[in-house]
Design a protein around this nucleic acid. Structure first.
Lengths: 211, 211
DNA sequence: TAACGGTGCAAGCAACCACTTGCTTTCATT
DNA sequence: AATGAAAGCAAGTGGTTGCTTGCACCGTTA
């Protein structure tokens, strides 16, 4: 049983995710939280302050997708972390969509999201660079753009699958497929079922811990 | 000089793009269109009908990115069409973001967008398959997932660059970089400045017209 | 000239909004 | 039993919303 403050914040996030800032009425938040409407104002001061606090608390991107199990191949590691990120992002997809749409009107609300995203991206780029070095593939490959595209694929998949599912790989295979295409694009070989045209090498263990 | 009807629809789309359905008041549309508020209701019946009509008219994805100039290499073709799609999408990015966020509350509004997107994607997959065949690279490559990732990269770039620019390639190079990573991932060689680790071949002209 | 469709204008409607006030109730701590 | 903080409740504030009404105006067509 949560206390009032937590129940209200949770309700605010839920209502905001489904209806945006304007659609989030204090009456509805109070109703969903099972408290009186006045209580919101006594605890948070205003609707805007309450919603801002609700956004501040969310953790959109799983902060601990690594370090990965070193006994896994790069493909296995990537598939696993892709899936983890997708699952966690998916939980907040409605809220994130609202935040993105309202970025012009309420820029403060999506700052948390953006900050997390940048950090996660740089961490991933470092991992990918390390991977390229360890695997000894062409160091001139554009790792950063490949990483950007992988991030985009994951983000866009989560945000748009409900609307245009046909343009994405089947949900259960998406994480692995994105991993394969990514590895291919940075020239790191993996053992695919006859899908690899680059010379195969014995799988090598690598770790994300160095990133 | 547009007539009233067109001016109103244009204003409605503009206001919707910046403020969403709830934020789009009939008073504001009338103001921006330079007509009296009553005129909206006389011409369109209701706010919802007006906005629906405004969405129906938009063309989000350039319907004619091809057939490409056959004198161009695949990389040049792709770069060009990527850039064209990005430019056109970018014009509607605010409107699209609002539509995506409100997909649950107003599903009818984003149907047009989704339909266009699916068609454009299938057309592109067909082009990519043809490319793989002509270039004689490994036919077992996962072309569809690579295409999906390219689409995602472009879409996500356009929609999120204002918020997290650091996670994307520089704006002027993005179209070309996405094209290179894509070609790399489907095993089609291109002439990069020392970035190619797959064996180079003399550039071959291909056309998207077959798609 | 007469009729008519399109438009503007002023006013107003009921519903809803965020937020406030004044008062009572609940309940744990002392 | 007394105290005080947290919560509920009912009512009301001024403002905004989508939409309507009634009437005057104006240019075209008959």
């Amino acid at each position: 049983m949560l206390n009032h403050r937590e129940r209200i914040i949770e309700a605010a996030a839920r209502v905001y995710a489904s209806s945006g800032f304007r659609g989030t009425t204090t009456r509805r938040i109070a109703e969903e939280a099972g408290v009186n409407e006045v209580t919101l104002f006594r605890l948070f001061g205003s609707k805007a302050a309450l919603i801002a606090e609700a956004m501040r608390i969310q953790e959109f991107i799983d902060p601990h997708p690594g370090p990965p199990d070193p006994s896994l191949t790069p493909l296995e590691q990537l598939t696993k972390s892709n899936a983890a990120v997708m699952e966690n992002l998916s939980k907040h997809r409605h809220l994130i969509r609202q935040g993105m749409a309202e970025q012009m009107e309420h820029p403060e609300l999506c700052n948390e999201l953006c900050g997390e995203k940048k950090v996660a991206f740089e961490r991933f780029v470092a991992y990918a660079r390390d991977l390229v070095k360890r695997e000894g593939s062409d160091p001139n490959v554009d790792v950063r753009t490949s990483a950007s595209m992988l991030f985009s694929a994951i983000f866009h998949d989560v945000m748009s699958r409900e609307m245009v599912a046909e343009t994405f790989p089947p949900a259960q295979q998406a994480a692995a497929r994105y991993a394969k295409v990514f590895l291919r694009s940075i020239g790191v070989p993996f053992e695919g079922k006859g899908k690899s045209s680059t010379p195969r090498r014995k799988r090598r263990r690598t770790s994300l811990a160095a990133a």
